[in-house]
């Protein structure tokens, strides 16, 4: 880090103004690249195993369409509201930013609630992680995504607190921007889960 670390560039959006922020944002993009590799591996595992149901239920027998549709709706909407939060931030409107972040949070929490309900339902049907290779890979893939979303919710809460404490600075703006990248990424992953796990499972 040189003097450049704190060189302030007024022409950029707030979150890009310091060198440190630019490094952080690039680093986070690369981290998302690694996350792509991680989820790709989980998807590959799932696709290899999803017909290996052993003595347990198959995907078609198990999946609950209604819950999954509600989850999808909640998460896709939350991605949109997260985008609105960034839009408000770019306009420098703190109250709008926090309001949309809170909406995003609530939608995310709703997603997690429905996902947990879905999982509990499966477990009650006797379909646990231990039942078959298909279910192991299902729970680990979808659960990893769910764990990411939960982490995102906790992270967003921390950032909202910091926004309230410190106001909208170059540093807090960067944090909001990065968590929004993370949130959109999880949305993209969910679209793949929805197609490759649920739709495929109900068709085959």
């Amino acid at each position: 880090m040189g003097e450049a670390a704190h060189r302030y560039d007024e022409t950029m959006p707030l979150e890009y103004r310091t060198q440190e922020s630019r490094l952080n944002i690039l680093g986070f993009w690369i981290f998302l690249g690694a996350e792509v590799a991680l989820f790709a591996t989980l998807f590959a595992t799932y696709l290899v195993l999803f017909q290996r149901t052993g003595s347990g239920p198959t995907a078609g027998e198990l999946f609950e369409v209604k819950d999954v549709l509600i989850e999808t709706l909640l998460l896709l909407t939350s991605s949109f509201t997260c985008g609105l939060a960034i839009f408000e931030m770019r306009r420098g409107r703190m109250s709008g930013l926090i309001a949309w972040l809170l909406v995003t949070l609530l939608l995310g929490a709703g997603f997690i609630t429905f996902e947990l309900r879905e999982f509990i339902h499966y477990v009650h049907e006797g379909a646990t992680m231990q039942t078959s290779a298909f279910l192991s890979s299902f729970f680990v893939l979808v659960g990893t995504h769910g764990a990411h979303v939960s982490l995102g919710i906790a992270w967003m809460i921390l950032i909202i607190i910091q926004l309230l404490q410190r106001g909208l600075t170059a540093k807090t703006a960067r944090k909001v921007f990065i968590v929004s990248l993370y949130w959109h990424f999880l949305d993209v992953v969910w679209i793949f889960i929805f197609t490759l796990v649920y739709l495929l499972g109900m068709v085959i």
């Binding site: 595992t45 290996r52 992680m129 231990q130 290779a133 192991s136 680990v140």
Partner: peptide
């Protein structure tokens, strides 16, 4: 991922690489 699946198999009893229940 591979190590996580291994941990799940060994510690939590999942069926990724086992000999029964579809493991591979």
């Amino acid at each position: 991922v591979a190590l996580a699946l291994m941990t799940f198999d060994r510690v939590f009893g999942t069926q990724f690489f086992t000999m029964a229940n579809g493991g591979m």
